[in-house]
């Protein structure tokens, strides 16, 4: 017996019996297919699918264009959603002492440079994927551990107050729409 416990049998059967797939096109015209259970993790996409009236029959013929998300981010997002599509609803954390640990698979997935991660967060926010948002924010939060303000400024790409002021000044100096 060498049955891989990685993939639950339920999942295999369900996919076989109910292989509803959707096509998504990223802003840079990459095409992705995603299963129904996975796409439901994105509230934005699922609302869209429902509103468009896509069904098992016509789904693949009607790719969904997502203009705010590029291919690189979309790939991560599709991977994430497929990975977590059968997750059970997480229990409410009632005990605030309990520390939530990011699963290793997800930590690997999100081991990308900050620029990418920040883009991914914006994409995740747009697609409204609660769990991925939690995980991304967690990764960003962990970066802050034991850092000084200067280190945080660099990590998070925050301008100094002086830079901020300069930016504001140049904005107010530049001619407005009427000028």
């Amino acid at each position: 017996m060498s049955v891989e416990p990685e993939v639950p049998i339920v999942q295999v059967e369900e996919v076989r019996e109910n292989p509803v797939l959707y096509k998504i096109i990223s802003s840079d015209n990459h095409v992705f297919t995603i299963s129904e259970h996975a796409v439901k993790l994105s509230k934005t996409l699922w609302d869209l699918i429902t509103n468009l009236g896509l069904t098992a029959e016509n789904a693949l013929d009607n790719p969904i264009p997502v203009e705010n998300v590029n291919g690189k981010n979309m790939e991560t997002i599709v991977q994430f959603c497929e990975r977590h599509k059968y997750d059970e609803e997480e229990p409410e954390y009632t005990n605030y002492i309990r520390e939530f640990v990011l699963p290793e698979w997800d930590r690997q997935l999100l081991s990308i440079d900050n620029e990418e991660l920040f883009q991914l967060i914006l994409a995740t926010n747009y697609l409204d994927i609660q769990k991925l948002m939690d995980y991304c924010c967690r990764v960003i939060g962990d970066m802050a551990k034991d850092k000084t303000p200067e280190e945080l400024r660099i990590i998070y790409g925050i301008p100094t107050d002086a830079e901020d002021d300069a930016l504001e000044r140049s904005a107010s100096d530049s001619p407005g729409p009427s000028g």
Partner: peptide, 8 residues
Amino acid sequence: MSSLIDFP
């Protein structure tokens, strides 16, 4: 360059 402060 993305920045934390660009986040909604």
